[in-house]
Computed example of a mutant assay.
Amino acid sequence: MALDHGQLNSLGFSKAPADTRVVVAMSGGVDSSVVAAMLKDEGYDVVGVTLQLYDHGAALAKKGACCAGQDIHDARRVAEAMGFPHYVLDYENIFRDAVIDEFADAYLAGATPVPCIRCNERVKFKDLLATARDLDADCMATGHYIQRKLGEAGPELHSAADPNRDQSYFLFSTTPEQLAFLRFPLGHLASKTETRALAAKYGLSVADKPDSQDICFVPNGNYASVIEKLRPGAADPGEIVDMEGNVLGTHRGVIHYTIGQRRGLGIGGLEDPLYVVRLDPDARRVIVGPKEALSTRIVPVREINWLGDGAFDARAEWPVSVKVRSTRPPRPAVIRPLSPTTAEVELLDPEEGVSPGQACVFYETGGSRILGGGWIWRGY
């Protein structure tokens, strides 16, 4: 049954919800469960899909980590309670090749990777989205806290209404083609409290389930132990040196250290505190220096995904706001394109602890629109 001419349903289609098929990516958490239940309640033809991304053995199964065995069970229970089909897809090989291997290699190279971005880019919004199309879905919905708005040139990506839940940093690599197919029904909510209230309204078993905190394949946040298993020998010891190359002590493996780290260096007794300012994995060296040595103004960025209007390199520079870490607010900056996918970003106020492997995400100055972003690939 079609709607009246010009009338759109809540997902933006000119047909009745019952005639609109939506695949919901279900992690087993409260957010995606609420999305599925809400759309089913509105009358949509909902299909739930959960990805099995890694071995759920005792070593990695952890309550609160996305995509563990319990989470698949929770997603299935929600689907059964709400009365829509639910499928579990084995994506372990894809996930290992596209996310875990690069994560390990990046850490070994002295970078600080963000695997959740790669998972969205290479698995959820690529292979899973293709699966949704194969299921004849009109769109795919997720529980991410981000907003999709229609602009003059088409769909735009905007920050979530709740800045404390905003996940735009992790979704900057969403392409315009993917954005046309995706929906984010929770992005407009004012707080997570509203989401849990909706879960209670629909009687979902996950209403009080805690949020996941860790990267799904890193139990207890112990990155080093995972990398040691994936890359034997990765924790070989080496020297801690100052910026002039003077040896100050020894370390237990470069993978145990990150840019900006102060605690746990094992080189006490010095007058002024020292911070990790650079990692040299080839020489197995951790380079330390004063806090001011962490200050960075120029940030080289590559693999840029541009979501703004016009060609990225059509102008000599773009005034924007940028995030160089997920936990920091956007800061004023200027982007100078070097090619369609590379740029130099100048921070108007220097940032500390800018690390290769992190993302640099571009925001409209004074607005909520995400203009894209790229990967920080070399520190100065």
Results as ranks from 00 to 15, higher is better:
8 L>V: 10
11 L>C: 05
13 F>M: 08
15 K>V: 00
16 A>W: 03
20 T>E: 02
23 V>L: 13
27 S>D: 04
28 G>V: 09
35 V>Q: 09
36 A>R: 11
39 L>T: 10
39 L>F: 12
39 L>K: 12
40 K>I: 00
43 G>F: 02
43 G>L: 04
44 Y>D: 10
45 D>F: 08
45 D>N: 13
47 V>L: 15
48 G>I: 12
49 V>I: 15
55 D>A: 14
59 A>L: 13
59 A>F: 04
62 K>R: 14
64 G>W: 12
67 C>Q: 02
69 G>S: 03
72 I>V: 11
75 A>N: 03
76 R>S: 13
78 V>S: 07
85 P>N: 09
86 H>L: 09
88 V>I: 15
90 D>Y: 11
90 D>G: 09
90 D>W: 12
91 Y>C: 12
97 D>P: 00
99 V>M: 01
100 I>V: 15
104 A>V: 10
111 A>Y: 11
112 T>H: 00
117 I>K: 00
119 C>Q: 07
123 V>T: 08
126 K>D: 15
129 L>D: 00
132 A>I: 10
137 A>L: 03
145 Y>I: 06
149 K>M: 04
155 P>D: 03
157 L>K: 02
158 H>Y: 07
159 S>Q: 14
161 A>T: 08
162 D>T: 03
162 D>H: 05
168 S>M: 09
168 S>H: 12
170 F>A: 15
170 F>L: 14
171 L>Q: 01
173 S>E: 08
174 T>Q: 07
178 Q>N: 09
182 L>M: 09
182 L>H: 01
183 R>H: 14
187 G>E: 06
192 K>H: 05
201 K>D: 05
203 G>H: 12
206 V>L: 08
208 D>R: 11
209 K>V: 06
213 Q>D: 06
217 F>L: 07
217 F>T: 01
218 V>A: 06
219 P>N: 04
224 A>V: 05
225 S>F: 04
227 I>L: 09
227 I>K: 08
233 G>S: 02
233 G>R: 01
239 E>T: 08
240 I>W: 05
244 E>V: 08
245 G>M: 14
246 N>D: 14
250 T>F: 02
251 H>T: 00
257 Y>N: 11
259 I>G: 05
264 G>W: 04
266 G>M: 05
267 I>G: 03
268 G>Q: 11
271 E>D: 12
273 P>Q: 02
278 R>I: 00
283 A>D: 13
288 V>Q: 05
288 V>D: 04
293 A>S: 08
293 A>T: 03
296 T>Y: 03
302 R>Q: 12
313 D>P: 10
317 E>V: 02
319 P>L: 00
319 P>Q: 04
320 V>L: 13
323 K>V: 01
324 V>R: 10
324 V>C: 14
329 P>M: 04
329 P>R: 09
329 P>C: 04
330 P>F: 06
334 V>N: 02
339 S>G: 07
348 L>R: 11
351 E>T: 00
351 E>S: 07
356 P>W: 12
364 E>I: 06
368 S>Y: 13
371 L>M: 12
372 G>F: 05
372 G>H: 07
374 G>C: 07
374 G>W: 04
378 R>T: 01
379 G>Q: 11
